[in-house]
Nucleic acid binder design. Structure first.
Lengths: 179, 179
DNA sequence: CCCTCCTTATATCTGGCAGATATTTCTAAT
DNA sequence: ATTAGAAATATCTGCCAGATATAAGGAGGG
C-alpha cells in the first residue's frame, strides 16, 4: 500500500471548518489540533499545491498582495471523508524519556530521578491546560454538534496526563533502591 | 542546534548489552525496546557505518561469510553516555484516532464508536502483554542492577494502556447523544 | 514622518526516518 | 537433493520536521 500523505487529512479537515491562508492553516492546526497533531510549512505548502492540482481546494485572492486563501471544494470534502475512513496508520512511537530510563544505569540514577520529576512537572502543567481547555470549549462551542467529538479528544489528553503523573510516582518508588 | 541522530543512541545502547550483527540489532530493538522505540534497517546500516568511522563501534568477523558483528568501543560507551545526557527531543505526536474523532461529525458517529471499540480492544491486549512482560522480566532479570530501570519502562506502558481503556469508556459516554 | 520591530506570509532545503524491496547465504525439513 | 524459510546485508522512495531566507504590512516610538 502506497503510504498516504497524512498531511492532506489534517489540511482538508482544517479547511472544512473555514477557508484560510497556508500560514493561518498552520496556526490553526497548531492551536486547535496541537494536542494530538502537528504540521510543518515544509509539508503544508507542497500539500496545498497537490490538493489544488487534484481540484480538492481552490486558490482565492488572499488578504494581501501575493497572498492566497484556500477554499475546500465539494470533491475536497468527499476526499476528506475518504481519508478519514482509511485505516489508521500508526507511526512508531519514540519515547526519549523511556529510552534513557531503560539505559538508566549508564545514565545514573540521579539523572533518572531528575528526568522523572521533570516529566511530572510537565504533565501537571499539561493536565491544568486540558482542564482549562475543557471549560473554555464547553462554553464557546456549547450546542455545537461538534462538541462531543472535540470533548473526546480533550478527554484523551486529560487521561494521558493523569496516567503520566501516576506513573512518575510509581517510577520514583521503583528507583528508590537503585544506584 | 543540529539535529542529532536518535538512532545512534538506541544502537549504542543495544550494543552496550552485547555485540550483535545489524540484523540482530534490529531484532533486539524491536523485541526489547519495542514498547517505546523502533528502528528500521534504512537507519541502522548507515548509522553503524558512521559509528564505525567515528570509532564508536568496531566491526568483527560475523557468524557467517560476509557477515559482521559490531562491538561497542570505550569511546562508544562514552558517546552513549553523552547522548543519553542530552536534552530529550520530543517528536511531535500524530494521533490518527484523535484526528478522526475531532472530525467525527464528517466521519459519522457509528464509525467513531467502532474506532473507539477497536482502540479499547487493542489497549486491553496491550495491557495483558505488559502484565505478562512484568512477570517474565521480574523472574529473568531478578537481582540485575538494570531491573528497576527496566521496570519503570514497563510500568509506563501499563499506565498508558490503562489510561487508554478508561478513556474509551468516557469517550463512548460522550458520544452517546451524538449523531 | 521615519525607523524599527513584530507579525503575517510564502517558499525552499537539508537531513532524519520508515517501509518496501532486492538479493544472498545458511539451515532445516521433506 | 530439493525446497522453504530464516538470517543477513543493503538500497531507494517518499514522508516529514525544523531551519532558514525573504518580504510585506502594521504598530509604536522618537
Amino acid at each position: 500500500m502506497a503510504r498516504r500523505s497524512q498531511t492532506e487529512m489534517a489540511v482538508l479537515g482544517a479547511l472544512s471548518m473555514q477557508p484560510m491562508t497556508a500560514y493561518a492553516l498552520r496556526e490553526a492546526i497548531r492551536d486547535v489540533l496541537g494536542h494530538f497533531w502537528s504540521e510543518s510549512f515544509g509539508q503544508i505548502y507542497p500539500t496545498l499545491q497537490a490538493l489544488e492540482q487534484q481540484g480538492h481546494v481552490e486558490r482565492r485572492e488572499g488578504p494581501r498582495a501575493g497572498s492566497s486563501t484556500f477554499v475546500i471544494t465539494a470533491s475536497g470534502t468527499a476526499h476528506l471523508h475518504e481519508l478519514l475512513s482509511e485505516p489508521i496508520t500508526t507511526t512508531p512511537s519514540r519515547n526519549g524519556l523511556l529510552l534513557r530510563l531503560f539505559f538508566g544505569r549508564t545514565l545514573g540514577s540521579d539523572r533518572c530521578r531528575e528526568l522523572i520529576l521533570q516529566a511530572r512537572a510537565d504533565a501537571e502543567r499539561s493536565l491544568a491546560d486540558y482542564e482549562e481547555l475543557r471549560r473554555t470549549v464547553a462554553v464557546e462551542d456549547a450546542g455545537s454538534p461538534d462538541l462531543p467529538y472535540i470533548m473526546t479528544t480533550i478527554s484523551a489528553g486529560r487521561h494521558s496526563a493523569q496516567a503520566l503523573i501516576a506513573w512518575t510516582e510509581e517510577a520514583l518508588t521503583l528507583l528508590d533502591g537503585a544506584t
